[in-house]
Design a protein around this nucleic acid. Structure first.
Lengths: 225, 225
DNA sequence: TGATTTATTGACTAACTAGTTAGTACTTAA
DNA sequence: TTAAGTACTAACTAGTTAGTCAATAAATCA
């Protein structure tokens, strides 16, 4: 409804009367709401997030939220889709086919952890969505497709590693994916409670480095025969 | 304020006038509120949980909640403490010293997963608490102590396994603990989103069994040299 | 038995919150 | 230039929610 494209010229779209910056820019405003909402939901969860707070932080009028999105829930769904889009884009940059099985697996483990590190909203939003039993994303159809390339990459690495005699047999690719993710996920998602009980700052760069090294040792140590 | 003990006879405490069941039982009511609140917080998170809903489910008057607990937040803190108490009790039952390093480690991995399976509130409450950056439990002083025996058990198993030449050197016990937990935690905490994208019921007993087997293989495969 | 304590209740309130209404002003197309 | 569309605003509303008040009745104690 909002982004009705009808042959707009790319370069000079909606040129403001004078040389001033545009006072009204639908796409940009929509994006700002989405970005602010992502931060708010990430910090406070679905029920803790306040539409009024999003409005305040985005410095817009409240009705704009309802102009671009139907409801708080719809806004959250679009936030989730944006998160999955980020993950898809990050994955699309990666390739493991040109590496040895061991090196490829190392890259996959490191990449998975890196995504969690660089996009903290991923872990928070997944937690929120699972608290609600995935009722939001279950509507979305293109999300399962997101995982396919990753599972295929794992299958390829396993096949090649087994053929070369360096990896063990009988590894379920889905279980392996869950393990690779879980090793970093638990560390980061629970860093506040874990940091409290172990009296360490798990976010310190050196500690994060150590964790990544450990994760690689666990996965490679398991796979090697 | 509520459980003021002053030499009450254990057996016949507050015997009702006739042989009828007690109409008013402070300890029991308090416990019912706590149990209902645990369910409500587990299902909906801190901000999604409703005091009125706890009142409805516990079939009590709203004021009782504020009679036994100062506030919603205080009630949540006691729910968290109850969860940690459950974990402590479950751990106290375990012993790994009388097993071989391999068998002991297997038992530890299985036990950790079992606790998550049997007490679903553990994962949910940890998630909630981490969303709020552990601000509730940071006040509690006896929670770090909870983890000490577990880490000590891991240290003992590692030491014995290394001495026997079956385990590798250079394993950080905290990292290993986080890995053992993380392998099961991610699987269970994210079962709804993972189940959706992989089109599998991760809660099916056979699938859970497979997961446990995989976890043991990963940890033991990593540790063995 | 009578006084005191306390477990329990129903009705209430002040503050909050998602969503709406009615209208203003910038931009574009004819 | 003007009419239409739409980006945007301020103020409002209906419903919700954590927490309170004032009073009742069951158990305990003197």
């Amino acid at each position: 409804m909002a982004a009705k494209a009808r042959g707009v010229e790319e370069g000079s779209k909606a040129a403001p009367r004078r040389g001033r910056p545009p006072l009204r820019d639908a796409a940009r405003t929509r994006e700002r709401i989405l970005k602010t909402a992502t931060a708010e939901f990430t910090e406070k969860g679905y029920d803790g997030a306040r539409v009024d707070e999003i409005v305040r932080r985005a410095k817009i009028s409240k009705n704009l939220v309802y102009h671009y999105f139907d409801s708080k829930e719809q806004l959250f769904i679009e936030v989730m889709e944006g998160m999955y889009r980020v993950m898809r884009e990050r994955q699309a940059e990666q390739s493991f086919a040109d590496l040895s099985p061991e090196e490829g697996m190392r890259k996959l483990v490191t990449f998975t952890f890196q995504v969690f590190l660089e996009h903290p909203e991923v872990i928070a939003l997944l937690n929120i969505e699972n608290l609600h039993k995935a009722r939001h994303i279950r509507r979305s159809k293109n999300i399962p497709a997101l995982y396919n390339p990753l599972i295929e990459a794992i299958e390829d690495l396993l096949r090649r590693g087994q053929a070369a005699g360096v990896f063990r047999d009988g590894v379920d690719p889905v279980d392996l994916y869950i393990s690779i993710s879980g090793l970093g996920y638990f560390y980061l998602a629970n860093r506040h409670t874990l940091g409290t009980v172990f009296k360490t700052d798990l976010e310190a760069p050196a500690r994060v480095e150590q964790r990544l090294r450990h994760m690689n040792e666990v996965i490679l140590g398991y796979l090697r025969r």
